[in-house]
Design a protein around this nucleic acid. Structure first.
Lengths: 132, 132
DNA sequence: CAAGTAGTTTAGAACGATTTTAAAGTAAAA
DNA sequence: TTTTACTTTAAAATCGTTCTAAACTACTTG
Protein backbone atom coordinates (compact mmCIF):
# COMPACT_ATOMS: atom_id res chain seq x y z
CA UNK A 1 0.00 0.00 0.00
CA UNK A 2 1.42 3.37 -0.93
CA UNK A 3 1.39 6.43 1.29
CA UNK A 4 -1.57 8.05 -0.45
CA UNK A 5 -3.60 4.93 0.28
CA UNK A 6 -2.34 4.81 3.86
CA UNK A 7 -3.50 8.37 4.43
CA UNK A 8 -6.92 7.73 2.89
CA UNK A 9 -7.33 4.55 4.90
CA UNK A 10 -6.53 6.54 8.04
CA UNK A 11 -9.24 9.02 7.06
CA UNK A 12 -6.81 11.80 6.19
CA UNK A 13 -6.89 13.77 2.94
CA UNK A 14 -3.64 13.18 1.14
CA UNK A 15 -2.53 16.79 0.87
CA UNK A 16 0.84 17.81 -0.50
CA UNK A 17 2.16 18.50 2.99
CA UNK A 18 0.93 15.21 4.48
CA UNK A 19 2.46 13.31 1.60
CA UNK A 20 5.83 14.97 2.16
CA UNK A 21 5.73 13.95 5.81
CA UNK A 22 4.41 10.46 5.05
CA UNK A 23 7.25 9.95 2.59
CA UNK A 24 9.74 10.75 5.32
CA UNK A 25 8.10 8.89 8.19
CA UNK A 26 6.33 5.91 6.71
CA UNK A 27 9.31 4.26 5.06
CA UNK A 28 9.31 1.25 7.38
CA UNK A 29 12.32 2.42 9.37
CA UNK A 30 11.68 2.84 13.09
CA UNK A 31 12.75 6.19 14.44
CA UNK A 32 12.24 8.56 17.34
CA UNK A 33 11.95 12.24 16.49
CA UNK A 34 10.68 15.66 17.55
CA UNK A 35 8.75 18.23 15.53
CA UNK A 36 12.01 20.11 15.04
CA UNK A 37 13.86 16.99 13.84
CA UNK A 38 11.12 16.45 11.30
CA UNK A 39 11.26 20.05 10.11
CA UNK A 40 14.98 19.61 9.49
CA UNK A 41 14.32 16.47 7.46
CA UNK A 42 11.64 18.26 5.48
CA UNK A 43 14.04 21.08 4.72
CA UNK A 44 16.80 18.63 3.85
CA UNK A 45 14.45 16.96 1.36
CA UNK A 46 14.16 20.27 -0.49
CA UNK A 47 10.69 21.06 0.82
CA UNK A 48 9.48 23.51 3.43
CA UNK A 49 6.46 23.74 5.63
CA UNK A 50 5.02 25.92 8.36
CA UNK A 51 5.80 24.65 11.83
CA UNK A 52 2.06 24.85 12.59
CA UNK A 53 1.42 22.39 9.77
CA UNK A 54 4.05 20.04 11.12
CA UNK A 55 2.42 20.07 14.54
CA UNK A 56 -1.06 19.61 13.01
CA UNK A 57 0.17 16.75 10.93
CA UNK A 58 1.93 14.98 13.79
CA UNK A 59 -1.19 15.26 15.90
CA UNK A 60 -3.35 13.90 13.07
CA UNK A 61 -0.96 11.06 12.33
CA UNK A 62 -0.82 10.17 16.01
CA UNK A 63 -4.60 10.29 16.44
CA UNK A 64 -5.00 8.01 13.42
CA UNK A 65 -2.42 5.58 14.73
CA UNK A 66 0.11 6.17 11.95
CA UNK A 67 2.71 7.13 14.56
CA UNK A 68 2.92 7.04 18.37
CA UNK A 69 3.93 9.61 20.92
CA UNK A 70 6.39 8.42 23.53
CA UNK A 71 5.60 8.93 27.23
CA UNK A 72 8.53 10.96 28.41
CA UNK A 73 9.03 13.83 30.81
CA UNK A 74 11.28 15.70 28.39
CA UNK A 75 10.19 19.23 27.53
CA UNK A 76 9.81 18.36 23.84
CA UNK A 77 7.31 15.84 22.50
CA UNK A 78 8.94 12.72 21.08
CA UNK A 79 7.26 10.68 18.38
CA UNK A 80 7.92 7.14 17.27
CA UNK A 81 7.27 5.52 13.91
CA UNK A 82 7.20 2.09 15.53
CA UNK A 83 3.48 1.66 16.16
CA UNK A 84 3.62 -1.89 17.48
CA UNK A 85 3.44 -2.38 21.24
CA UNK A 86 7.04 -2.14 22.35
CA UNK A 87 9.21 -0.73 25.10
CA UNK A 88 12.16 1.58 25.62
CA UNK A 89 15.48 2.04 27.27
CA UNK A 90 15.92 5.67 28.28
CA UNK A 91 19.21 7.35 29.06
CA UNK A 92 17.96 10.13 31.30
CA UNK A 93 21.19 12.11 30.91
CA UNK A 94 20.98 12.43 27.14
CA UNK A 95 17.32 11.68 26.53
CA UNK A 96 18.32 8.92 24.12
CA UNK A 97 15.66 6.26 23.57
CA UNK A 98 16.34 2.72 22.37
CA UNK A 99 13.54 0.39 21.29
CA UNK A 100 12.91 -2.89 23.08
CA UNK A 101 10.80 -5.29 21.07
CA UNK A 102 7.71 -6.57 22.80
CA UNK A 103 8.91 -10.18 22.93
CA UNK A 104 12.00 -9.15 24.87
CA UNK A 105 9.87 -8.34 27.87
CA UNK A 106 7.59 -10.78 29.62
CA UNK A 107 5.26 -9.89 32.41
CA UNK A 108 4.57 -12.74 34.81
CA UNK A 109 1.99 -10.83 36.75
CA UNK A 110 -0.06 -7.76 35.91
CA UNK A 111 -2.18 -5.84 38.39
CA UNK A 112 -5.94 -5.80 38.18
CA UNK A 113 -7.19 -3.00 35.94
CA UNK A 114 -9.26 -0.53 38.00
CA UNK A 115 -13.03 -1.02 37.97
CA UNK A 116 -14.67 0.58 34.94
CA UNK A 117 -11.48 0.76 32.88
CA UNK A 118 -9.94 -1.23 30.06
CA UNK A 119 -6.26 -1.99 29.48
CA UNK A 120 -5.15 0.25 26.65
CA UNK A 121 -1.50 -0.76 26.30
CA UNK A 122 1.47 -1.57 28.49
CA UNK A 123 4.74 0.32 28.20
CA UNK A 124 7.87 -0.69 30.01
CA UNK A 125 10.56 1.93 30.43
CA UNK A 126 13.99 0.86 31.57
CA UNK A 127 16.03 3.82 32.68
CA UNK A 128 19.70 3.31 32.06
CA UNK A 129 22.82 5.28 32.81
CA UNK A 130 26.32 5.21 31.41
CA UNK A 131 28.74 3.07 33.32
CA UNK A 132 31.64 5.03 34.84
CA UNK B 1 13.95 11.89 61.28
CA UNK B 2 12.41 15.34 60.99
CA UNK B 3 12.28 17.36 57.79
CA UNK B 4 15.20 19.60 58.70
CA UNK B 5 17.36 16.51 59.10
CA UNK B 6 16.02 15.02 55.87
CA UNK B 7 17.02 18.16 53.99
CA UNK B 8 20.47 18.26 55.52
CA UNK B 9 20.98 14.58 54.82
CA UNK B 10 20.05 15.25 51.20
CA UNK B 11 22.67 17.99 51.08
CA UNK B 12 20.15 20.84 50.98
CA UNK B 13 20.21 23.86 53.27
CA UNK B 14 17.01 23.85 55.27
CA UNK B 15 15.77 27.28 54.26
CA UNK B 16 12.37 28.61 55.29
CA UNK B 17 10.95 27.92 51.82
CA UNK B 18 12.31 24.38 51.59
CA UNK B 19 10.92 23.60 55.03
CA UNK B 20 7.46 24.82 54.03
CA UNK B 21 7.53 22.55 50.99
CA UNK B 22 9.01 19.63 52.90
CA UNK B 23 6.26 19.93 55.51
CA UNK B 24 3.67 19.60 52.75
CA UNK B 25 5.32 16.89 50.69
CA UNK B 26 7.25 14.71 53.09
CA UNK B 27 4.36 13.66 55.31
CA UNK B 28 4.45 10.04 54.25
CA UNK B 29 1.35 10.29 52.08
CA UNK B 30 1.89 9.34 48.43
CA UNK B 31 0.65 11.92 45.99
CA UNK B 32 1.04 13.11 42.41
CA UNK B 33 1.18 16.85 41.87
CA UNK B 34 2.28 19.68 39.61
CA UNK B 35 4.14 22.89 40.50
CA UNK B 36 0.81 24.70 40.38
CA UNK B 37 -0.89 22.17 42.69
CA UNK B 38 1.92 22.68 45.16
CA UNK B 39 1.64 26.46 44.97
CA UNK B 40 -2.03 26.15 45.84
CA UNK B 41 -1.20 23.98 48.84
CA UNK B 42 1.45 26.47 49.95
CA UNK B 43 -1.09 29.29 49.72
CA UNK B 44 -3.70 27.20 51.52
CA UNK B 45 -1.22 26.64 54.35
CA UNK B 46 -1.05 30.39 54.86
CA UNK B 47 2.36 30.79 53.24
CA UNK B 48 3.41 32.16 49.87
CA UNK B 49 6.37 31.70 47.64
CA UNK B 50 7.65 32.80 44.25
CA UNK B 51 6.85 30.31 41.51
CA UNK B 52 10.56 30.34 40.59
CA UNK B 53 11.39 29.12 44.09
CA UNK B 54 8.84 26.35 43.78
CA UNK B 55 10.41 25.18 40.53
CA UNK B 56 13.92 25.43 42.00
CA UNK B 57 12.86 23.50 45.03
CA UNK B 58 11.12 20.75 43.06
CA UNK B 59 14.19 20.34 40.88
CA UNK B 60 16.45 20.16 43.94
CA UNK B 61 14.20 17.72 45.75
CA UNK B 62 14.03 15.54 42.65
CA UNK B 63 17.78 15.62 42.09
CA UNK B 64 18.35 14.62 45.71
CA UNK B 65 15.85 11.78 45.48
CA UNK B 66 13.36 13.27 47.93
CA UNK B 67 10.66 13.13 45.25
CA UNK B 68 10.39 11.63 41.75
CA UNK B 69 9.22 13.05 38.45
CA UNK B 70 6.78 10.90 36.53
CA UNK B 71 7.50 10.02 32.90
CA UNK B 72 4.49 11.43 31.12
CA UNK B 73 3.94 13.26 27.88
CA UNK B 74 1.61 15.79 29.48
CA UNK B 75 2.55 19.44 28.99
CA UNK B 76 2.96 19.98 32.73
CA UNK B 77 5.55 18.18 34.83
CA UNK B 78 4.07 15.73 37.33
CA UNK B 79 5.90 14.87 40.53
CA UNK B 80 5.41 11.95 42.88
CA UNK B 81 6.16 11.70 46.58
CA UNK B 82 6.36 7.90 46.31
CA UNK B 83 10.09 7.41 45.79
CA UNK B 84 10.08 3.61 45.89
CA UNK B 85 10.23 1.77 42.59
CA UNK B 86 6.62 1.47 41.52
CA UNK B 87 4.40 1.71 38.48
CA UNK B 88 1.37 3.57 37.18
CA UNK B 89 -1.96 3.27 35.52
CA UNK B 90 -2.52 6.27 33.25
CA UNK B 91 -5.87 7.42 31.93
CA UNK B 92 -4.71 9.24 28.81
CA UNK B 93 -8.01 11.11 28.50
CA UNK B 94 -7.84 12.79 31.88
CA UNK B 95 -4.14 12.45 32.71
CA UNK B 96 -5.08 10.72 35.98
CA UNK B 97 -2.33 8.54 37.44
CA UNK B 98 -2.86 5.66 39.86
CA UNK B 99 0.03 4.00 41.67
CA UNK B 100 0.79 0.33 41.21
CA UNK B 101 2.98 -1.11 43.93
CA UNK B 102 6.12 -2.83 42.75
CA UNK B 103 5.04 -6.26 43.97
CA UNK B 104 1.92 -6.14 41.82
CA UNK B 105 4.03 -6.40 38.69
CA UNK B 106 6.40 -9.22 37.96
CA UNK B 107 8.74 -9.32 35.04
CA UNK B 108 9.54 -12.81 33.83
CA UNK B 109 12.04 -11.65 31.30
CA UNK B 110 13.98 -8.42 30.97
CA UNK B 111 16.04 -7.47 27.93
CA UNK B 112 19.79 -7.24 28.08
CA UNK B 113 20.93 -3.76 29.14
CA UNK B 114 22.93 -2.15 26.30
CA UNK B 115 26.71 -2.45 26.50
CA UNK B 116 28.27 0.21 28.70
CA UNK B 117 25.07 1.01 30.58
CA UNK B 118 23.58 0.12 33.94
CA UNK B 119 19.94 -0.50 34.79
CA UNK B 120 18.71 2.59 36.61
CA UNK B 121 15.10 1.63 37.31
CA UNK B 122 12.18 -0.04 35.59
CA UNK B 123 8.84 1.71 35.21
CA UNK B 124 5.77 0.00 33.89
CA UNK B 125 2.99 2.21 32.57
CA UNK B 126 -0.41 0.66 31.94
CA UNK B 127 -2.54 2.94 29.83
CA UNK B 128 -6.20 2.56 30.63
CA UNK B 129 -9.38 3.99 29.22
CA UNK B 130 -12.88 4.32 30.58
CA UNK B 131 -15.21 1.53 29.60
CA UNK B 132 -18.17 2.69 27.52
C1' DC C 1 -15.88 20.47 -16.06
C1' DA C 2 -17.71 24.37 -12.94
C1' DA C 3 -19.12 25.83 -8.72
C1' DG C 4 -19.67 25.01 -4.06
C1' DT C 5 -18.10 23.45 0.47
C1' DA C 6 -15.54 21.51 3.76
C1' DG C 7 -11.15 20.67 5.21
C1' DT C 8 -6.13 22.42 5.17
C1' DT C 9 -2.21 25.46 5.30
C1' DT C 10 -0.01 29.56 6.69
C1' DA C 11 2.46 33.48 9.13
C1' DG C 12 2.32 35.51 12.96
C1' DA C 13 0.33 36.34 17.37
C1' DA C 14 -0.70 34.24 21.64
C1' DC C 15 -0.16 31.02 25.26
C1' DG C 16 1.47 28.45 29.24
C1' DA C 17 5.06 26.12 31.58
C1' DT C 18 9.50 26.74 32.89
C1' DT C 19 14.02 29.15 33.24
C1' DT C 20 16.91 33.13 33.53
C1' DT C 21 18.33 37.46 35.40
C1' DA C 22 20.36 40.24 38.66
C1' DA C 23 19.60 42.26 42.92
C1' DA C 24 18.37 41.61 47.75
C1' DG C 25 18.28 38.33 51.44
C1' DT C 26 19.88 34.46 54.51
C1' DA C 27 22.45 30.37 56.33
C1' DA C 28 26.66 28.68 57.51
C1' DA C 29 31.72 29.19 57.94
C1' DA C 30 35.66 31.62 59.46
C1' DT D 1 31.04 39.41 63.72
C1' DT D 2 32.29 39.46 59.13
C1' DT D 3 32.60 37.02 55.18
C1' DT D 4 31.26 33.83 51.80
C1' DA D 5 28.44 30.97 49.35
C1' DC D 6 23.99 29.80 48.55
C1' DT D 7 18.98 31.09 48.04
C1' DT D 8 14.96 33.72 46.99
C1' DT D 9 12.52 36.98 44.34
C1' DA D 10 9.79 39.61 40.72
C1' DA D 11 10.01 40.35 36.35
C1' DA D 12 11.60 39.42 31.89
C1' DA D 13 12.82 36.00 28.73
C1' DT D 14 12.53 31.60 26.51
C1' DC D 15 10.74 27.70 24.31
C1' DG D 16 7.56 24.36 22.68
C1' DT D 17 3.11 24.37 21.13
C1' DT D 18 -1.55 26.13 19.87
C1' DC D 19 -4.62 29.61 18.06
C1' DT D 20 -6.32 32.90 14.61
C1' DA D 21 -8.26 34.20 10.57
C1' DA D 22 -7.31 34.65 5.86
C1' DA D 23 -5.80 32.30 1.69
C1' DC D 24 -5.74 27.93 -0.44
C1' DT D 25 -6.91 23.19 -2.14
C1' DA D 26 -9.10 18.61 -2.34
C1' DC D 27 -13.18 16.64 -3.03
C1' DT D 28 -18.32 16.59 -4.11
C1' DT D 29 -22.20 17.55 -6.71
C1' DG D 30 -24.58 19.22 -10.64
Amino acid sequence: MNNKEKLRKAGLRPTKQRMIIADILLDGVNRHFTAENLQNEINASGNSMSIATIYNCLKNFRNCGLIKQVESSKDTAIFDTNINQHHHFLDEETGELIDIENDEVNLRKLPKIPQGYLNNGVEVLIKIKKQI
